[in-house]
Amino acid sequence: MRIRKEEGLGPVRQVHRSKKTERGVVVIAPASGPDGDSGQPVSYDEILAATKPGPLHSHLAVASATRGLHLSSAVTNAPWLLLAVDECLLTIEWFCRAFEVDDAVRDLLGQASAAILEGAEAVLTKGLAGMNSPGRKLIEIEFLFRDFALDGRRAEDWSKADRSGRVKRFSFAAVRGRVEAAANVPKGSMLPDRAEFAAHSEGIHVTPIRAKNAPGPAAEVVLGFCDLLEHSRRLLGALYALAAAAAYELSAAADDPPAMPALQKALAQMGAIAVANGMPPRELIAEDWEEHLAAALRAHPLGRSAE
């Protein structure tokens, strides 16, 4: 296989051409330095600038510029939103260090962190609509934690079930039904999460419905981050409820849980932000994640093993 540099595309693009198939494969690589090393890492914008103009190039360029503008706006006008996202991620990391959790819960926490990061990145490009898929994932994980808290055996059942078994016993409808029954939700009523899940699901499916009177781009980003943090908060509440119900062992060497002042500020302002943008105040499940954390720590005080 011989390598030929494509003319006119700068130092970041090379074409590997197979002698057998003569099929070109584009490879993006850093330019070589004078000593044969790879030189400086190539940025996304540099690679984008080296691509051929066209519809995809235009879309990627606009998305990159939009993401930068929205990030700058968030840093300037509401930096506590970004700090709150970090606090949620650090709290999940702390939980995995501090408590002896089973593999199923640890796996779900990894997926939760990934969904939070996915949501933050998507919101910067798409605004509130970017939360459709990540929000649905976070709701699913939240309810699995609530379900596992009702019966600790379900965590292992969920992790070992085949696809058919998971669809039958651990679909969102099945899990939500068990959680609603345990909460004594009256027949004909439902937890607010059901409508929330439906809204996120509708957003990722093909539909003729379009949002009317959508807020401006800056407000979309703020609302997107508020939605991300609200689902993260509820997931943490379900996680700490699970820790208390399952009596997870707390490591004697565990450090203190991260402080979360930015999340507290975000939660305090979410209602006002929603109303200011013509949205109804969110109906929240009456559970406080701080109360669940306190219960978990009372069961296993920090700094010493449980007696």
Rank of each mutant, 00 (worst) to 15 (best):
M1H: 14
L9M: 11
S18W: 06
V25L: 15
A31L: 00
G36I: 04
Q40V: 01
V42S: 06
V42Y: 01
D45P: 01
L60E: 03
S64Q: 01
R67L: 07
R67K: 09
R67C: 05
S73A: 13
A78R: 10
L83K: 15
D86A: 09
L90G: 00
W94T: 12
C96L: 12
C96Q: 15
A98D: 09
F99W: 11
A122C: 05
A122R: 11
R136T: 07
L138F: 03
E140Y: 08
E140A: 13
E142H: 01
D147P: 11
D151W: 05
G152K: 10
G152Q: 09
R153H: 04
K160I: 02
S164E: 09
G165E: 08
F170G: 05
R176T: 03
A181V: 02
F197Y: 15
H200A: 12
G203Q: 05
H205T: 07
H205K: 04
V206N: 07
R210Q: 15
A214Y: 08
P217W: 04
F225G: 01
C226T: 02
G237Q: 04
Y240W: 14
A246L: 14
A247V: 02
A247T: 00
A259R: 13
A262G: 10
L267Y: 12
A276C: 08
A286Y: 10
R298W: 14
P301N: 10
S305P: 08
E307W: 11
